[in-house]
Design a protein around this nucleic acid. Structure first.
Lengths: 223, 223
DNA sequence: CAGTGGATGGAACGCCGTTCCAGTCTTGGG
DNA sequence: CCCAAGACTGGAACGGCGTTCCATCCACTG
């Protein structure tokens, strides 16, 4: 065995807010939203639950910090010389992809939207709307509508990820829902039955930008 | 005192799924989302937690049932001879008002949207889109976009209700946020600062239908 | 070299959803 | 008319959660 060369550091790597948030993100990604526990986190960090509270006030703040950590990397890409529409699409898609990779981010954003990350998004969207020459009086409405839509999709993606959690792959899941739709009562659910096929074959990402474009069209179509 | 005329019923009013769901709705309305507890529910129903499980499989189903109970009353109003746009607006507004009165419904809908209530809404919206002569291939996209937007607003309303919970009235709350926005860094948050005034003075309901109209405009604006 | 305070981590508290089960009441078949 | 069977009740208990408490430790400072 190795000789005890020096008295070991207090910890190999001291606890810190960043290390805790990092471990929380890993835990959320691997075990899911319900898997983030102060006990599990403590075990992963080789410490006790109490120590974590020295660096973080509670679970709410921890979740907010984890969300910020993920979103910060995706919103980083700044201005390009794209058209305002393209820039908004790109911004929204960045968020979409982040949520797709980390579904719990969707839950968190939809749950407490007035946090810092959505403020970043709101600001970026707003600037592009200004570039689109949206009248000042309509800017808040337009930006809010885009935000609401994005948050709605975020929540739904998170919900779908939650629902499909077992071994089932995404296609299976979609297929199951589409089949259930197709089996609905023909009188009461005529429309839903009718679009079951589109549900089965649709591409989430493409649908998402299509929705963004719908709103952008509405915004730019002067009445 | 009254004489014991007959042996008392097992309970004055027997437990039933409906009575349990009703009590759950009352609890959610009065004490909030965190106040719905099987113990609190049992106390309100003068029974023990175990008895509730005879009628309801668990908290998830209870929340779903409570949500359905509330939404069912609002989606009840059926077809009129309004234009499709007006009908969609009315449908969405009905949902909005229900969520405004019961913020926990917003949380629930945004959290598990593939449940029955949102299917009702989806169907109704879809039929109106058909009436609008939206091309079949675009119907799923259009209906989904409207749903996502509605769910996004639902989640935000619930979040705001959660955030403002103390004694603060809505105007105060909005004022506080608007003031915070106005105090942001002028370089990093130029747009947000700019619309802080619109945030302060906006009407949630009006903004909501404005967003619906934006999407409807996008849907009906053939490219 | 003493002591002071930032940092640690294990134990404990109170509450939750859920399960278990010993009972009670109702009912319908013999 | 009785009594087994089963629907239904409600209190106790289980395991796990977020959070708090606190005895302890280590790196500094004077």
């Amino acid at each position: 065995m190795a000789t005890r060369t020096r008295r070991p550091e207090r910890r190999q790597e001291p606890l810190s807010r960043e290390s805790i948030v990092g471990a929380a993100v890993e835990l959320l990604d691997t075990v899911g939203e319900g898997g983030l526990t102060f006990r599990a986190l403590a075990e992963r960090l080789a410490t006790g639950p109490g120590a974590i509270y020295w660096h973080v006030t509670g679970k709410t703040e921890l979740l907010a910090a984890a969300t910020e950590a993920v979103v910060a990397t995706t919103v980083a890409g700044d201005d390009t010389d794209a058209t305002p529409q393209e820039a908004i699409r790109a911004l929204a898609l960045g968020l979409f992809d982040a949520i797709d990779a980390h579904p719990w981010v969707g839950t968190q954003l939809a749950r407490t939207p007035s946090q810092a990350p959505m403020l970043w998004v709101f600001e970026r969207i707003g600037r592009r709307l200004q570039a689109l020459r949206v009248p000042e009086a309509a800017q808040f409405t337009a930006a809010s509508a885009l935000m609401s839509y994005i948050l709605g999709v975020a929540g739904q993606n998170a919900a779908n990820a939650r629902a499909a959690q077992p071994g089932t792959d995404r296609t299976e899941f979609l297929d199951a829902v589409a089949t259930a739709w197709a089996a609905l009562d023909p009188d009461e659910y005529a429309f839903t039955r009718n679009v079951a096929g589109q549900l089965r074959e649709h591409d989430d990402r493409a649908e998402f930008v299509a929705g963004i474009d719908l709103i952008l069209t509405g915004i730019t179509a002067r009445r």
